[in-house]
C-alpha cells in the first residue's frame, strides 16, 4: 500500500512516515499543497493523509483538486482546530475521515486501515475466505485456523491483492504500491515473492488463491464469505 503524507510540520511528517513504515506501508511525503497536488495526480496512491493547515494552497483545496482530477483513493484529513465546520467542509470536499491533532499513532493507523478496507468494499476488518482468513487490523493471516508466519512484504502483497480481489494487478502496480521508490524493480523479485507466498498460504495447492495471468500480472481468485 502506497500512501501520500502531506504535512507541513517536518517532525509530525517524519513521525507519521515512521509509523506507516513500521506498519508495513510505503509512503511519499511532502510539506506543501502544490507538491501534494502534483504527487497525488501523478502517482497511484492507495490513500492520502492531508493536513488542513498547509501553507499557500491549503489542505481543503488539495482535497478538492484531487477529487476534481478524478482521484478516488481515500483521503484522511488532519485538523488542528478540530471544529465541526472544518471537519464537515473537509468531508464535503471529498475527504473520507479526519483525525484531530494531537493523535495517538494507533488511532491514526486504525483509521488508515479502516479506510483502506472500506475502499476495497469490506466492512469488517477480517477478510474471511473460508480456510484463509486475513485480519487487516492485526495484520495476520490464518489458514484453517492456524496463524501463518508471513514477512511484512508478503503480508502486504497478499492484503493488496485481496483488497483488489477479482481485479488484474500488474507487477508494476504491485511494485508501485508496495515498495519504496528506490526498490529494485526487477520483476523476478515479485515472482519469487508470489511463489513464496503461495507456498505459505496454500502448501497443498488445493485453494489456489492467486492466479497468474501470463504476461500481465496476478489476480486474487477467492471471494469473501462475510
Amino acid at each position: 500500500m502506497r500512501l501520500l503524507v502531506v504535512e507541513d510540520e517536518p517532525h509530525i511528517r517524519e513521525q507519521i512516515c515512521t509509523q506507516l513504515k513500521s506498519a508495513g506501508y510505503v509512503s511519499d511525503a511532502c510539506g506543501d499543497g502544490r507538491e501534494a497536488i502534483f504527487l497525488g495526480t501523478e502517482h497511484p496512491y492507495d490513500l492520502a493523509i492531508i493536513d488542513l493547515g498547509l501553507p499557500e494552497v491549503d489542505g481543503l483545496e488539495v482535497v478538492k483538486t484531487l477529487r476534481a482530477e478524478g482521484k478516488k483513493f481515500p483521503i484522511l484529513i488532519l485538523t488542528a482546530r478540530g471544529n465541526w465546520q472544518d471537519k464537515v467542509e473537509g468531508l464535503e470536499a471529498g475527504a473520507d475521515d479526519y483525525v484531530v491533532k494531537p493523535f495517538q499513532n494507533e488511532e491514526l493507523l486504525a483509521r488508515i486501515n479502516a479506510l483502506l478496507r472500506r475502499a476495497a468494499g469490506h466492512a469488517s476488518p477480517s477478510l474471511d475466505y473460508g480456510p484463509l482468513v486475513i485480519n487487516t487490523t492485526a495484520k495476520t493471516v490464518s489458514r484453517d485456523g492456524n496463524k501463518l508466519e508471513l514477512t511484512s512484504f508478503e503480508y502486504n502483497t497478499l492484503e493488496y491483492l485481496a483488497l483488489n480481489s477479482g481485479k488484474l494487478v500488474s507487477k508494476t502496480e504491485l511494485t508501485e504500491h508496495l515498495y519504496d521508490q528506490d526498490f529494485d524493480r526487477d520483476s523476478n523479485v515479485i515472482e519469487v515473492f508470489i511463489g513464496r507466498l503461495r507456498k505459505k498460504i496454500d502448501p497443498n495447492g488445493d485453494l489456489k488463491p492467486i492466479d497468474t495471468v501470463r504476461g500481465q500480472g496476478y489476480r486474487f481468485a477467492l471471494e469473501t464469505q462475510n
Binding site: E9, H11, Q15, G53, A80, R81, K101, P102, Q104, N105
Partner: peptide, 11 residues
C-alpha cells in the same frame, strides 16, 4: 498550539 503538542505527543 496543537502542532507542537502533536510533535511532543509523537516523540
Amino acid at each position: 498550539l496543537k502542532t507542537p503538542l502533536a510533535v511532543i505527543s509523537g516523540f
